[in-house]
Each structure stands twice: as C-alpha cells, then as structure tokens.
Simulated scan of single mutants.
Amino acid sequence: MLVPVAVILAVAGYFLPFLVADHRKHNNLPAIFALNLLLGWTIVGWIAAAVWAFSRPTVFIGCNPPSSVAAVLTHHENQETERTRPDRP
C-alpha cells in the first residue's frame, strides 16, 4: 500500500513544473513539458523547468505584435514619403 503512494508522489514531484505551468495556463506548456520530461532528472533541468513554469506567461491582449510592428513601420514610411515629396502648387 505504501509503495504505490510513494510512486505517485514521486511522479507528481518530478512533473511539478509541468503541473504548475498547466495550472497557470502557460503559453509555452509543450516546451516546459519537454524540458521537464527530458532533463527533469537532472537538478538543473528540473529547476529550469520550475523557473520557467513560475514565470509570468506573455499575454497579448487586443493586438497582434507582428501587425503592430508593421503598422508602426508603415506609419514611419508614410511620414518619410510625405517629408520628401515636393509641395504641390
């Protein structure tokens, strides 16, 4: 009876970074799982997965970063063309 409980606790402890990331709805969940699965047996890998799991997930609300960057660049290009265009009589 004690052995199955110990095995369950050991597996839960091993995958604790993944469980935390899943609970926090981390956007890098598959990568954290892979790091935890493949390198979690090393102390450094487990700590790296735990730090990553506890880090604040990046959330983009209301805008898509690539389109925002494109909009800024387009605006900048429009200003440059207006500045270099000769005035019309």
Score class of each variant (00 low, 15 high):
H26D: 11
H76R: 02
I61H: 15
L29R: 13
H76K: 01
R88C: 06
A21G: 04
S55I: 03
F54G: 05
L39G: 00
A49W: 01
N64F: 02
I43N: 04
F60L: 13
P86D: 07
I61F: 13
G40T: 08
L29I: 14
G13M: 08
L16I: 09
A71S: 09
E82L: 15
V59I: 12
P65R: 00
H76V: 05
W46I: 08
P30A: 04
T74V: 11
W41V: 07
F33P: 00
H26T: 06
L73Q: 03
L29P: 01
T42F: 07
H76T: 06
A50H: 07
V44Q: 08
W46N: 06
P89C: 08
A50D: 14
H75T: 05
P17Y: 10
V72N: 02
G45S: 04
N28A: 15
H76M: 06
D87Q: 02
L35V: 04
P30G: 02
A70M: 11
W46S: 08
F15D: 07
I8Q: 12
L9E: 07
V44F: 06
I32H: 00
P57C: 00
A34Y: 05
V69R: 01
A10N: 11
F54T: 06
A10R: 11
V3P: 03
F54V: 11
P4E: 12
D22R: 08
A71D: 09
L38A: 02
T58M: 11
T58N: 12
E82G: 14
N78A: 06
P17I: 13
A12G: 10
L9W: 10
P57H: 00
F18G: 01
V11P: 07
I43A: 05
S67A: 14
A6P: 05
L9H: 07
I8S: 14
P57I: 00
D22M: 11
T81G: 01
V44D: 08
I47W: 08
A50E: 15
P30Y: 05
R88S: 11
V72T: 03
L2G: 14
V51C: 14
V69A: 04
A48V: 12
R83M: 08
